[in-house]
Every structure is written in structure tokens, then in C-alpha cells.
Design a protein around this nucleic acid. Structure first.
Length: 474
RNA sequence: GGCGCUAUCGUCUAAUGGUUAGGACAGAGCCCUCUCAAGGCUUAAAUACGGGUUCGAUCCCCGUUAGCGCUACCA
């Protein structure tokens, strides 16, 4: 049984890179009929915040990809400690009584190569170790990384291929802090073992940690999961994406607030570091799920293309527009309704009419927010008149002609695209003006906008009453 | 410093030991047209550098450079 997990730590809002990791885990799990576990890795009590936890849920909920099981590491500390002590009992770990920060001087550490262990601690006799611990002296529990014997730790990565590292290059990393709290490595491995995680999919920043994790799994006598690491998402200048340096781009909610369709966002993130290899770009969630595999994952970091002026990657914007104009109307409507309501507008009661309106205008929209802003004339009674639109109305004779058109439409039998067009062209011919004057004038009168859908589509979208009213009130 | 990972158009990426190195976004232009989009077409744009291996390397190997990651009692 395939089991994967997404394990964010609540130390900031849901990061775009984390969101992608979650999505890839979801795709992989769904593709193979596995179970997706959401686990909150909150062992760093100093940095955890409730706000962050809320933001993670908010982001994941919006992305609209449900998980199957949920855990919080802070509720499983007994397990972590128990397993850490098992490792100690088996002799794969030892107590390090070096005071915290004593070896912190970075200079010392880096000068003569890498730091592997604090002197004297690894070799301490069991008796002395027990005695000092019993006396209440604080210690950090360290893994006893195998030395000598040319031990090499190996694993196969689903994305990066075969990996190996000499044990002599791995330091004696901490398992338990002097506070008794487990470190990330300990908690993560203990939970992965306990929750029977069979496949770990996570960021490439954990690639070298994996050697340590394998050591822990072995010491635990647990089955070693399979691994697949994902290339990182980076800023245009090649640096790591950070809230402090790059602002809102790194947050999932930015895209939500910019009117993204959740699955357009999913589509975009999947294209960052993964490719279907058949030139497809726009894909539904289902299409991605059906073909997702590690073979399509690229090994180089991917740049999220944003600027200071615009936090949204142009390709993401384009994809959102593609989804908006091509997805089934019935699926789009609820999002538009929500967006209108958020702006204090009401969607038309008549579902068919609502669909008709949305369908006429959606081709030129790239964000859900456009429906409430550029779409205002279609859903509301008051709307601004743009300068360019005013200019159309100010063309000689334009206003008179438009009022006349309004009067004629008022008494007309029919009100369809064809009938309106016939009426308009007839008037143009009678008055010996170019139809364009009336056509562009109508758009200006009906929407206050100089640009927009074909004028004849406008009349039926705006509706008979309002159209006539707007023409006559010009 | 040590260890590890990576390197194709501005960006996301495809490809193969032999191709005019393909697609998409963004850019430029044309067409369509009642405007703006959409759509269609065209155009410009890349194999980091140096060595090998080979009849032939973008692809395989080595080195250089650069970037990133790990090197915490962060995750």
C-alpha cells in the first residue's frame, strides 16, 4: 500500500514551494491509488505560530486537493522520545554533555574542515554517561554515525538516481535536544516509520539529509521508504525564495487573492520542474493526475518569474486565462459568483442568462477579479465611463443616433443579436453614417468601455431593459 | 573550508550519440475584425567554458566556472 506524506512546519505562511511539494505528493498518491497524509511538523516550539498553521490550512483548502489522514508531531512526542531512547539503548546514539553553543563559534568549526562530533563525548563510558544524566546534567542525544570501515550510505532517488555518501562525511547529528524535544530528523523518521510512509517526496534541500535518515531507519530496524527529491523553486536572481526578500510572491494566498482558479494554479506549479513531455501546457487536474510520474521531473531548480512590479509569473497569468475561457461554464460559474459577491455584486438569478453573460466576456479575462471590475457593467447598474469611451460618444452626432437607436429598439418586436444588428444597420444606412459609429458608440453607451466584446453580443448580455435605458440616457 | 546536487532561448521546458536543437510564456510583426481580447500565421532568441571518448557529441567521461543545498540542541 502506497503511503506518502506532506509535512510542512508552521513557521510561516504556506510557501509556493511547499504548495508544489504538496501537489506532487497528491498527484503521485492519486495516480497510484495511495494514501496522502498531512503531517504538521511542529517540533520547533520557538518558531511555530498559530497564524502559520491557519495559513497552511487556508492555502491547502484553497488548492482544493484533499488529503486522507492528519497528524501533528507535537502530539506524538512520546513516540519520538521512545524511539530515540531505543536507538540509545541499542548503542547507536550517545549523550553529548557539551554545553549548548559551546561549539557554536562558526570560525572554529569551518576552519579545519567539517565538524563531526564534540571531543570526548562519543567515547564516554556508559557508566559515566548514565551517572551524569542521572545527576541531571543536560545533554543532547547524538546519533553515533559509523566511523571507519569505509562505510558508505546509499539510496536510490526517484528523481536524482543513485546516491551515496561516505559515513565519514556525516556528522554525529542530534536526535534529542537538551530540552528533551526531538529534532526534525528524529521526529520525522520516527513518524515516517510509525505511519508506514512508503514513499517520501520532498524538496531537494533534504537530499543530503536523507543519508542521516537512512541511518536512523536502520538503527530503528524500520523499513526504509523510497525517496524522490524535487528541484527547488528559486527567485529570478537565483536566490532562495523568502518572505523577507521577495514578499508576497512566495505565498499561495497571493495567487488566490489575485483571482486565480485553484486548478490553474495547480497546473502552473506542476509545470515548474515537471513536464508531460508532449508539449502540453494547459491541463486539468485530472489530466495531470493521469500521467504524473517522477520521470517527468527535471533536476535543475526552477525560477519563478516575477518582478517587483508584478508578483505573478506571466505564464501563470496566461494559464489562468486559458482555464477561465476554456473550462466548462458550469464549473466556472460558482467561482465567478463568489468573486462577484466578494465585490458586493449579485450574480443574475437566471442561471442561463448568467452563463450567457460570463461566456460572452470571459475570453478577454485573465483573473476572476476581472468579472467584478471589467465585468461591472454586466452585473451592476452603475459603472465608470472611461475617457476613451467618452470620446466615442462625443463623436459628432453619436449621442443623437444612439438615443434614436434606443427608441427604435424600445418599440421593436424582437430583441435578439440578429434583430438588433438589423435595426442598427438600418439606422446607419438611413442616416448615412458608418455602422462603426453606432457599433462603437453602443459599446461605449452600454459598458462605458471603449473595448470589449462584439457590440451585438453586448445587447443580449446586458439585457433589453438596461440596454435601452443606457442608450437613451446617453 | 568539507560533502552533495545542478547547468538547453529572458523564463518554464522537449529531444537524440547523427535534428534546420522542438513547444509554451513574455517580445516584435502580420492576418482576422465594429473595438479589445481570443484565435491563426510569421519572426527574433539557447546547448556555461575547456579537454577527452567517438566517424560524429547538446547528449557519455574528466576538469573549470557558476548557482543551489547540507554542514544547528532550524526544518
Amino acid at each position: 500500500m502506497l503511503r506518502v506524506r506532506f509535512a510542512p512546519s508552521p513557521t510561516g505562511y504556506l510557501h509556493i514551494g511547499s504548495a508544489r511539494t504538496f501537489i506532487f505528493n497528491w498527484m503521485y498518491a492519486r495516480r497510484h491509488g495511495g494514501t496522502l497524509i498531512l503531517r504538521i511538523d511542529d517540533t520547533d516550539v520557538e518558531r511555530n505560530t498559530e497564524a502559520s498553521l491557519t495559513s497552511i490550512f487556508e492555502g491547502l483548502k484553497w488548492v482544493d486537493l484533499p488529503w486522507d489522514e492528519f497528524y501533528r508531531q507535537s502530539e506524538r512526542l512520546d513516540l519520538h522520545r521512545r524511539l530515540a531512547n531505543e536507538i540509545l539503548a541499542k548503542g547507536h546514539a550517545y549523550r553529548d554533555f557539551t554545553p549548548a553553543h559551546a561549539a557554536d563559534a562558526d570560525e572554529d568549526k569551518n576552519e579545519g574542515g567539517q565538524w563531526l562530533a564534540n571531543p570526548g563525548m562519543r567515547e564516554m563510558s556508559a557508566e559515566e554517561s548514565e551517572r551524569r544524566a542521572a545527576a541531571g546534567e543536560p545533554f543532547v542525544l547524538r546519533f553515533r554515525t559509523p566511523r571507519g570501515a569505509g562505510r558508505v550510505v546509499k539510496f536510490h532517488d526517484g528523481v536524482y538516481g543513485d546516491q551515496d555518501k561516505k559515513a565519514e562525511d556525516i556528522e554525529d547529528f542530534a536526535l534529542l535536544r537538551s530540552t528533551g524535544m526531538p529534532t526534525y530528523h528524529m521526529a520525522s523518521c520516527a513518524d515516517d516509520a510509525d505511519l508506514k510512509i512508503s514513499q517520501i517526496i520532498r524538496g531537494q534541500d533534504h537530499l543530503t539529509n536523507t543519508f542521516k535518515h537512512i541511518l536512523i531507519f536502520e538503527a530503528l530496524g524500520a523499513e526504509i521508504p523510497k525517496f524522490a527529491h524535487l528541484p527547488l523553486l528559486i527567485a529570478p536572481d537565483g536566490s532562495k525564495l523568502s518572505k523577507r526578500k521577495h514578499g508576497p510572491v512566495v505565498s499561495v494566498t497571493t495567487y488566490r487573492d489575485r483571482g486565480f482558479l485553484p486548478h490553474a494554479y495547480v497546473n502552473f506549479l506542476c509545470l515548474l520542474g515537471w513536464s508531460p513531455k508532449d508539449n502540453r501546457e494547459q491541463m486539468t487536474r485530472q489530466e495531470i493526475q493521469d500521467i504524473f510520474s517522477f520521470e517527468g521531473i527535471n533536476r535543475a531548480n526552477a525560477v519563478v518569474n516575477f518582478t517587483e512590479e508584478d508578483p505573478i509569473d506571466p505564464k501563470a497569468q496566461w494559464l489562468n486565462g486559458q482555464h477561465i475561457r476554456t473550462m466548462p461554464l458550469t464549473e466556472l460559474l460558482p467561482y465567478v459568483k463568489q468573486s462577484l459577491e466578494a465585490a458586493g455584486l449579485k450574480a443574475p438569478e437566471d442561471a442561463a442568462h448568467f452563463g450567457h453573460v460570463v461566456d460572452t466576456i470571459r475570453a478577454r479575462f485573465v483573473s476572476l477579479g476581472d468579472f467584478a471590475v471589467k465585468g461591472l457593467p454586466y452585473f451592476g447598474d452603475t459603472f465608470p465611463t472611461e475617457a476613451a469611451s467618452e470620446a466615442k460618444l462625443n463623436e459628432p452626432g453619436a449621442r443623437e443616433l444612439l438615443r434614436e437607436l434606443g427608441a427604435r429598439l424600445e418599440v421593436a418586436q424582437e430583441f435578439t443579436e440578429a434583430s438588433v444588428e438589423a435595426e442598427l444597420r438600418k439606422l446607419a444606412t438611413e442616416e448615412a453614417v458608418k455602422a462603426g459609429v453606432l457599433i462603437n458608440g453602443s459599446r461605449a453607451a452600454l459598458t462605458g468601455q471603449a473595448v470589449g466584446p462584439s457590440a451585438f453580443h453586448l445587447f443580449t448580455a446586458i439585457g433589453r431593459e438596461r440596454s435601452i435605458q443606457r442608450l437613451k440616457g446617453v
